[in-house]
Design a protein around this nucleic acid. Structure first.
Lengths: 182, 182
DNA sequence: GAAGATTGAGAGTTCAATCTTC
DNA sequence: GAAGATTGAACTCTCAATCTTC
């Protein structure tokens, strides 16, 4: 993650890659390549910022997401399977994240009363406090401090939404939900 | 990646998150949150596509990038430090990737004649063939098949470029380079 | 002493296999 | 037999420490 690299005196790596791609005659794919590479790069930069902001709170972005998901849920409890579904990660990753959160007392694991195969992840009071601190710092240092004006941010979200939808990331028919999480 | 998740019948997770954010009164940060979350999600989707396309060729995206970088370089050889610099990854990651590529005979490691501390990664003939196959499949199945029209793709690249530049990802003054990689 | 690269530890991810319960 | 969750193996990434050479 960004292990301090000089931040200037460097030509745009994407531009270089595009020139290389064109030199091979891949003219039809060069823009797509630039899209994918740009997303990868911006992900790298944003991810590093978020992780750096959360490190003092002993959280990673994925554990932060789990914590926020639970804190937004009606009862503060969710089957771990549901968590993976919402976050689009492998069940094993959720098991891992919950265990890590449990180790710090931010989450508890409880048998699901409705299904004895299942396990509920329940956020604790300490977990709620940590979630508040974490969202504060991330809001302040990352989300609220992006180097793009509001119009550009909205345009970006719209373009990415178009892409997510084409990839089946969500179902437009049910988009009129009430924002209820679970 | 993406261990087959149902791809519909699901409301937009970003919209849900935005509603939750607003319910906490974080109105100024909600768009920034949407930007970051959207990038993360699209990264996940694109990364999964690229990795799936490359898996039959025994490559990951990072190893693919190393291979392409070497294949584009003038002599097919680059100090491993330079590779990490261009790809913005930790030196240890390059060591790992090169070792993995070397194991398959796609790259060779040679002492740098100009600096006895240094190591050169050199692409082999097999490496060049693999790089060709890999770029073919990635161009065909991902870069050339994005579900966005050209205008949207270009707009997306421009917005992401603005963001990368603001984060110091490159230096605009040297942007007029000739596309020469090394 | 600083730079180039590697090593070992620690954390995260995915996959395949497994165990329990539906 | 299928679904929910966990476990162990294999990878990748980062960081701190180390070794060699400038």
């Amino acid at each position: 993650m960004g292990h301090d690299q000089g931040m200037s005196g460097r030509p745009d790596p994407i531009k270089l890659a595009m020139a290389n791609w064109e030199s091979r005659g891949w003219d039809d794919e060069v823009v797509g390549m630039a899209v994918v590479t740009s997303v990868m790069r911006v992900w790298q930069l944003l991810n590093a910022q978020v992780e750096a902001a959360l490190r003092p709170l002993d959280l990673t972005f994925s554990r932060f997401e789990v914590l926020m998901l639970l804190s937004f849920s009606r009862t503060g409890a969710l089957p771990v399977g549901k968590v993976g579904e919402r976050l689009q990660v492998h069940p094993a990753s959720v098991t891992n994240a919950v265990e890590r959160l449990e180790r710090e007392g931010l989450v508890e694991r409880r048998p699901n009363p409705n299904d004895r195969r299942g396990v509920l992840a329940v956020i604790t009071e300490a977990g709620r406090r940590r979630a508040d601190e974490a969202s504060d710092v991330v809001n302040r240092t990352v989300f609220g401090a992006l180097p793009l004006d509001r119009a550009d941010q909205e345009a970006l979200v719209r373009l990415l939404e178009r892409m997510r939808h084409a990839f089946g990331d969500f179902d437009r028919a049910r988009e009129a939900g009430d924002g209820q999480i679970i």
